[in-house]
């Protein structure tokens, strides 16, 4: 219970708490679309590609948020340009572009002799969140949730059957890049909680857990947000209590929840299915 007393007492802990819950929620929401659209690798790419943006923002003395969004969007455009204009498949072009952006980012950050700590960007440190970061996270959260709420219908139909959506006149290309922008926003907001390298886990794992439990997209999104937030809270608690790095702990909590559902979920659970097939054999 010490954690909760400290939570009341220390502002830095409150900020960490609010930020990580918000990050858990928005990662779950966007992550649901990322896994249903088969864009897991794209999520990983964008999260690494914000690195040069962060460095450039620092050099220009602006909030790292702006630079990150620009390089994130440039990366998704670059990937699209390569795979549409050559025979190189999408996953390969993702590999080319994101490795290049990541490498560029590392060079920029180290050569800038900046005060930015590379480890902190790579692996996050939610306990060092400043008030301005909390505000950025909350704004991003509101934008992402509002966008998904308003365009839910279009996101559903284009994720499920993009050709049908295009056939009746939906701008599916715009929707794709819209999701890329949201993904970049979410990644930037997650930088301090879990860091560049582990954002992908927050995007994919809670959403994949939810995917095992439901047959409806709306339910999946709510469950993914819930699992994301729960991982964040439990992870923060464990990391604070046992003095462990916050990002990795949060990720492992999300993984533990996934593993539990993978084994025991009512419909898709491995254990449940084994029992069922045994029962069938007996009957």
């Amino acid at each position: 219970m010490e954690f909760f007393q400290d939570l009341m007492a220390y502002e830095f802990l409150q900020k960490a708490f609010i930020t990580s819950i918000m990050v858990g929620i928005i990662c779950g929401v966007i992550g649901s679309f990322i896994i249903l659209r088969g864009m897991a690798l794209m999520g990983d790419a964008i999260s690494h590609a914000v690195l040069p943006g962060v460095a450039i923002s620092y050099m220009l003395g602006i909030n790292f948020f702006y630079g990150a969004v620009v390089t994130g969007v440039l990366t998704s455009l670059g990937i699209g340009a390569i795979s549409q204009n050559s025979r190189i498949k999408n996953d390969s072009s993702i590999g080319i572009v994101f490795a290049a952006m990541f490498a560029l980012g590392i060079i920029l950050i180290t050569s800038a002799q900046s005060a930015i700590d590379l480890t902190q960007i790579l692996f996050g440190n939610v306990l060092s969140v400043r008030t301005s970061d909390v505000i950025v996270t909350l704004v991003v959260g509101v934008v992402v949730l509002l966008a998904v709420y308003l365009f839910y219908k279009e996101l559903l139909v284009s994720s499920f059957d993009e050709t049908m959506a295009a056939a009746y006149g939906l701008k599916v290309r715009m929707i794709h890049y819209g999701i890329m922008v949201l993904l970049t926003l979410v990644t930037v907001a997650s930088l301090q909680t879990v860091g560049v390298v582990l954002v992908i886990a927050m995007l994919i794992t809670p959403a994949a857990t939810a995917y095992l439990l439901t047959n409806r997209l709306s339910t999946m999104i709510f469950l993914a947000a819930f699992f994301g937030a729960a991982s964040s809270v439990i992870g923060l608690y464990v990391s604070f209590t046992y003095n462990l790095p916050s990002g990795p702990v949060i990720v492992l909590v999300a993984t533990a929840i996934f593993a539990f559902m993978f084994l025991f979920s009512p419909k898709q659970g491995v254990v449940g299915r084994m029992l069922q097939s045994n029962r069938r054999k007996v009957a």
Partner: peptide
Amino acid sequence: KEIAYVPQRNNIDWDFPILVKDVVLLGTY
């Protein structure tokens, strides 16, 4: 909007979390 397109079956992700009635509802979008 006057065009209804039915794709080849292998272009559909059949594991998508969607119920039969909701697939048909997409037609009203």
